[in-house]
């Protein structure tokens, strides 16, 4: 049933009927408002699950946007304002997961794949190019082409 509720909430959010930031939420100071907008794009709407609170029309997302703006207006740094919500909802609210023990694979994975893959490619290339680097004579080339054709022909 709760599941149903969430899906219904999602559908509501999707329909875009009352989307996101409303005029009365905005802070008068454009600098602070810009900070609040930037932060709310990195915070997850809990009910709709896959939108930022900046994008979501859910009532809870509205509340969280208002809280965020209150914290910022009260002089919180960005980190303090975000931590305020993390203390209540956990790391789950962060669309940018923190770099910590359980997420190092997530953050370093892409670079690791690139480096390991790069090492693999380098090894493979060394194997591939052993003879290719030594200049071939025209006769060698023709013989190679002949071989290739035979290969491709069958």
């Amino acid at each position: 049933m709760r599941r149903f509720l969430l899906i219904a909430a999602t559908a509501l959010a999707l329909s875009g009927s009352a989307r996101a930031v409303t005029p009365d939420e905005q802070l008068p100071d454009p600098k602070l408002e810009a900070r609040a907008r930037a932060l709310s794009q990195e915070l997850r709407c809990l009910v709709c699950q896959n939108q930022s609170i900046d994008d979501s029309a859910a009532p809870l997302a509205h509340d969280l946007r208002v809280i965020l703006r209150e914290r910022i207006a009260a002089g919180d740094t960005d980190k303090q304002a975000v931590d305020y919500l993390v203390r209540r909802y956990g790391d789950f609210v962060l669309l940018r997961p923190p770099f910590q023990a359980d997420t190092w694979a997530l953050w370093l994975g892409p670079v690791a794949v690139l480096l390991l893959g790069g090492a693999g490619v380098a090894l493979y290339m060394r194997g591939r190019s052993r003879t290719a680097e030594s200049p071939l004579t025209a006769a060698d080339e023709a013989a190679a082409a002949q071989l290739m054709m035979r290969d491709e022909g069958d």
Binding site: R2, L5, L6, A9, L46, V47, P59, L60, D63, L64, I67, R88, Y89, G90
Partner: peptide, 11 residues
């Protein structure tokens, strides 16, 4: 809804 939010209520 603030008390609920302090409790981490999402629904």
């Amino acid at each position: 809804g603030r008390a609920g939010i302090d409790l981490g209520v999402s629904g």
